[in-house]
């Protein structure tokens, strides 16, 4: 069964905010989590409503995103979309963690440094 996953992104990172994302990755996966297709969609403007519409029209199963308003979270959850929100890090790390069933909402995947030193 094909699984469709989307990640709103900003450059290489998971976009900070769902409502302000202007680019999304859509990844199609086969049964064994093999990437069948990966595409990037650049949105004409940032809009949570339009992004929701895109997610529904693309029949997405899983969403990995940053901050998302409750209204949209509830709506997408109601539409049976599995959401991992408040994820901080690069989209590839998030995707890898998700593939390994190792991703949770609120995960911070980026490195932590203070005054140039890892903490």
């Amino acid at each position: 069964m094909i699984h469709k996953l989307t990640i709103p992104v900003h450059k290489e990172n998971v976009a900070l905010r769902f409502d302000m994302a202007t680019e999304v990755f859509i990844i199609l996966l086969s049964d064994k989590f093999i990437i069948e297709e990966k595409k990037s969609i650049v949105l004409p403007r940032s809009s949570a409503d339009e992004l929701c519409h895109l997610i529904l029209s693309e029949n997405i199963n899983t969403l990995i995103c940053g901050a998302i308003e409750d209204e949209y979270y509830q709506f997408l959850t109601w539409k049976k979309i599995n959401i991992f929100d408040s994820v901080v890090g690069t989209w590839s790390e998030a995707f890898t963690n998700w593939k390994e069933s190792n991703l949770n909402s609120r995960d911070i995947l980026s490195s932590r440094k203070v005054e140039g030193r890892y903490v």
Partner: peptide, 19 residues
Amino acid sequence: DRAYGVKCHNILRSAACVN
């Protein structure tokens, strides 16, 4: 404990951080 050492925009998550 969650925010320590993380870039401030990832913690504040304001529209100003993006724009």
